[in-house]
Structures are given as structure tokens and as C-alpha cells.
Design a protein around this nucleic acid. Structure first.
Length: 493
RNA sequence: GGCGACGUAGCCAAGUGGCAAGGCAAGGGUCUGCAAAACCCUUAUGCGGCGGUUCGAAUCCGCCCGUCGCCUCCA
């Protein structure tokens, strides 16, 4: 048995569940990506980040992670809006797919091995629907094909509701041709002006839920380890995925662990494309360092609602800079002149830096392994930072090797160093670097002559240009202030 | 109406039976030419409310109040 030592909250059982991959040393994961009819917002970042941190942790522990995500690129709104703009649905969807991928790339979410698009998998979908009909789980009417929920006796097991309960609360006009009001479309007959593919039931296109079943089955097999997404997908999307997938394969459970994140809210409402209250992720990526954005989202446990506001985001950025600053300062201390510490010197022993670094790293990793408790993990990280900075302050910077190693690797598990170089310490290799260093040199000369007026004028002027200077015993450090620190704070939607 | 989450300091946020992590903000101090960064100190006899179980409850049970999500496209 392969034991990852990781526990995750499974929606189906409602309990923390040990992650035990079906194939030793390989974890198969599918996360639901967006329906691409509008720009990506921070809400979409959450499931991606949950998957990313989990994948980083698993890979760090030596597992291979097969991670598949998707773009739903056929949909009523995509078709309608593409028609309004006079472009093809494929072109229309492509714009938002690029928007999503660019933001994910900038945020360091690179562990997805395959982004599957519905329009590239129509034959898989048709084959799947066909077999569901053959097996008596689906029926066709006038070119539409519906899944018969009553044919699957355990329908409702993920969301914990019965057909009776749901029928009572139904708020939509029911299609009278359906056998049961909750039956859902697997295949939709094409209407004029809509993209269509050939099928045994005539030209048409896939319904909403079938694509995720078809694509996850294709890439991950009949049964796999983790399926993630926002908790707004529990019903009907994931409920229907289970029903159709298990009906198709005849085996269960389709998925070992259902991993759902809570919503990002604006004010007291869910952020969503349909409400129009969203902040574009690409805009945030432009304004804030990626590591700070990651920290903002990860500072709240993934199963709790997260309130977005410009103030909250800036607070996260200030908090993040504490980590980035410590890392930069410790690196400099270790790279500077001076003898490296003797092995087994004052930094060893129970209260020494080596032991503290070890304890922090272990606590950090254990917190992540316990249902991705990133909030608790940050606690360990900040304690490590305080301990290390204390050592710096007392002149023991040369002993920070183990502490820095722990900080680096813990930060890597959360992807916190994404963009860190840009905002800390002038490591950017570009033409402005020489100019900055020249100005620092001139200011140093002014300071030698005790010409404080000139020195302050240079420092203030550079601050106005977005560069902060800090005088230290080792010389003057500089860093880029990120744009948002001086920005007024209103985020455009 | 049904199902499911959640409510911890000024703000954000861990903790699910044994002295309430951590971050931001605020105040005081050290360092600094002045700053910045960093360090030290201070900031919840109390965890939505009321009962109950227990030697002991933020944590378990009951009721109530409030917020959010899903039941309709949604990460």
C-alpha cells in the first residue's frame, strides 16, 4: 500500500480521508476549469492553487502527479456572445483560454499536465453517450439525449439529497418530454446557427456535464484519486459526473476523494461571472507580485469563504514582504565575507538554529499534509522568520544556512517566491540596474561628506520612481516597490 | 422550504476536550545622520447568544441569532 501521509477532506463522506493512490507512487487528479465565456477572476485561482500546492507537496514527497484540467468551450453563452461579435465560438473561447493560461503561468501554476478542451473530445463524448443509451441509463428524444436519474439508484450521494427533496425545490420550468424532472442533457440537438457535430441522434453538441466525465476517463482511467473544483459545482455538475461515469464504467467509486474549495466573495456576495462583480485575475497579476497573490489566497484555509478586497490584498502583500525580505537578507548575510560558522558551534543543540529550522520545516509540512492547512503552515514560516531575524540582529547571520534552506523549501511548496526577485533587492538584470547602482554610489558619496540634503533628495526621488533604499551596515540595499503599494486601491472589474 | 458550510482581538486567521499559533494595523522602546528594514515590549480571564455534559469546553450536545453557498449558468 502506498501511504502518502496526506489527509484530505472528502465531500462525499464529509470526513478527512487518507490519500492512498490506486497506483503506488502515482496520484491522478482532475480539477474543473472554467467555462470560457468571460475573463478569469480570482475565484478561478482558488481550485487551481489548491491543486498546485497539493501537487507540489506530492512531488516533493516523490510522487508522480498526473493532473488534468479542462476548458469547457461549448456552451450556450459562448455561442450567443460569439454570434453577437460575429466571430466563431472557437475564436471567442480561445481569447478567454489564453487569458486563463497567461494568468496561471504568471502565478506559477505549471503542474497541470493536460488542459483538455471539449471541442477536441467530441468523439469520446459521443461514444460515451452511446454506451449510456445502450446500457439503459439514457434515452433520446428528437435529437436530444437525457440521462435518466432514476436508473441510478444512488443518485444524489455526493450532494446528500434525494430526488424527492430536489424536485420539491425545483425552480425551473420542466421539460415535459423528460421522464423525470431531474434528468439532464447529455447531448443537445443543434439549433440553427449553432456549432454542431455528427452523432447517431443527428447533428448536435454535448450537454454541460458529460465532457468532464469523458475527458477524465480518457486521461485518468475509470477510477482515479482526486477530483477538485469549487463547491458550487457539487450539484449538479459533480453529482451528474459521478452518475454518468459510474453508469458508463460499471465500477465505483469513480473518484476516491472529492476536493471542494469554498467561494471567493466580494462584499457579502460570491464573486462570479454572472453577477459581474469580479476582479480580473490578469489585472491583479499586473498590479501585485504573484507570490503575494498566492499568499493572499492561501492565507485562508481552502474550505472557508475568502473575502476579496483591495485592502485585504494589500495586507497580504505587506505580510508577504516580510518573508521575502528575510530571505533576501539571509542570503546576503551568507554570501558576504567572513568565516562560515564552525560545525556544531553555537547554532547546534536543542535551542539552536539548526533544531529550530528543522522543527519549523516539519511543522510546516505536517500542516500541509493535514488537509492543506496553509494558515497553520504560515504560522510556522513566520516563527522561523522571527527566529532567523533575531539571529541576524545579534550578529549571527553567518549561521543562518539551515534556516535559509528551510525557508526556501517551505516557500517553494507554496510557490511564494514567484516574482520575489522583482520586488526585492535589485536582482533584475536590465538596464535600469546600472542606473540605480550609479545613483546609490553618488548618494553614498554625499553621505560620506555628510551632505544629508543631497542624500535624502536622491532617496526620496528614487522612492517616487518606485525604488526603495535601505541603508545597512553592509551598504545600501534597494528594491522595487510594486506598483500597487503606491496605487490608490480601486480595482477595476 | 430542503441540503451544506461558517461565526475566534481593530482587521485577517489557525486551533475541534487540558494555560487562545501566526500575520496586518496601533502604541512604546532599541538601532539609524534622518529613514527603511530588523529586534524587544504592549494589545482576547475570552472564542455569535443561552442552556447542558465534564474535574476541565472555543473545542462535545441542544435550542436560538447572524452570514454565505447549493437546489438555475457558475471555480
Amino acid at each position: 500500500m502506498s501511504q502518502t501521509g496526506i489527509r484530505l477532506h472528502d465531500t462525499r463522506s464529509g470526513a478527512l480521508t487518507a490519500l492512498v493512490p490506486r497506483e503506488p507512487n502515482v496520484v491522478r487528479m482532475y480539477t474543473c476549469g472554467p467555462t470560457v465565456y468571460n475573463y478569469t477572476h480570482i475565484g478561478h485561482l482558488r481550485p487551481a492553487l489548491v491543486g498546485d500546492v497539493l501537487a507540489r507537496l506530492l512531488r516533493y514527497r516523490g510522487y508522480r502527479v498526473l493532473w488534468v484540467s479542462n476548458f469547457t468551450d461549448v456552451d450556450d453563452r459562448i455561442i450567443a456572445r460569439a454570434n453577437e461579435e460575429g466571430i466563431t465560438p472557437k475564436e471567442f473561447a480561445g481569447r478567454y483560454i489564453n487569458d486563463y493560461l497567461e494568468s496561471m503561468e504568471a502565478l506559477g501554476i505549471r503542474g497541470v499536465e493536460c488542459y483538455a478542451r471539449v471541442t477536441d473530445h467530441i468523439p469520446d463524448i459521443v461514444a460515451m453517450v452511446q454506451r449510456l443509451v445502450e446500457r439503459g441509463y439514457a434515452y433520446s428524444i428528437e435529437g436530444d439525449v437525457y440521462f435518466a436519474v432514476e436508473a441510478k439508484s444512488d443518485y444524489g450521494k455526493l450532494s446528500g439529497r434525494t430526488l424527492g427533496e430536489m424536485q420539491a425545490g425545483a425552480r425551473v420550468a420542466v421539460d415535459v418530454r423528460k421522464r423525470h424532472p431531474m434528468d439532464f442533457a447529455l447531448w443537445k440537438a443543434a439549433k440553427p446557427g449553432e456549432p454542431a457535430w455528427a452523432s447517431p441522434w443527428g447533428p448536435g453538441r454535448p450537454g454541460w456535464h458529460i465532457e468532464c466525465s469523458a475527458m477524465s476517463l480518457r486521461y485518468l482511467g475509470d477510477r482515479f484519486d482526486i477530483h477538485g473544483g469549487g463547491d458550487d459545482l457539487i450539484f449538479p455538475h459533480h453529482e451528474n459526473e459521478i452518475a454518468q461515469s459510474e453508469a458508463y464504467t460499471g465500477s465505483e467509486p469513480f473518484v476516491q476523494i472529492w476536493l471542494h474549495n469554498a467561494m471567493v466573495q466580494v462584499g457579502h456576495e460570491k464573486m462570479s461571472k454572472s453577477l459581474g462583480n469580479f476582479v480580473r485575475l490578469s489585472e491583479l497579476v499586473r498590479r501585485y507580485p504573484a507570490g503575494a497573490l498566492r499568499q493572499f489566497v492561501l492565507s485562508t484555509h481552502y474550505r472557508k469563504p475568502l473575502q476579496y478586497s483591495a485592502d485585504a490584498m494589500q495586507e497580504a502583500q505587506r505580510s508577504w514582504s516580510r518573508l521575502v525580505e528575510a530571505r533576501a537578507a539571509w542570503r546576503e548575510a551568507l554570501a558576504g565575507p567572513g568565516a562560515p560558522p564552525e560545525a556544531n558551534a553555537t547554532n547546534d543543540g536543542a535551542g539552536g538554529l539548526v533544531a529550530l529550522a528543522k522543527r519549523a520545516a516539519e511543522g510546516f509540512e505536517a500542516a500541509l499534509a493535514d488537509d492543506l492547512n496553509t494558515s497553520e503552515a504560515f504560522g510556522y514560516l513566520f516563527e522561523l522568520v522571527r527566529t532567523g531575524n533575531r539571529a541576524m540582529a545579534s550578529g549571527r547571520g553567518r549561521e543562518l544556512g539551515p534556516a535559509l534552506a528551510a525557508l526556501e523549501s517551505c516557500g517553494d511548496l507554496l510557490g511564494l517566491w514567484q516574482d520575489a526577485a522583482v520586488s526585492s533587492g535589485g536582482r533584475r538584470e536590465d538596464s535600469s540596474r546600472g542606473l540605480v547602482e550609479l545613483l546609490i554610489e553618488l548618494r553614498a558619496e554625499a553621505r560620506r561628506y555628510r551632505d544629508w540634503a543631497t542624500a535624502d533628495r536622491i532617496r526620496d526621488g528614487m522612492a517616487g520612481l518606485g525604488i526603495a533604499l535601505e541603508d545597512t551596515p553592509q551598504g545600501t540595499r534597494w528594491k522595487w516597490l510594486s506598483e500597487s503599494v503606491s496605487a490608490s486601491g480601486a480595482d477595476g472589474a
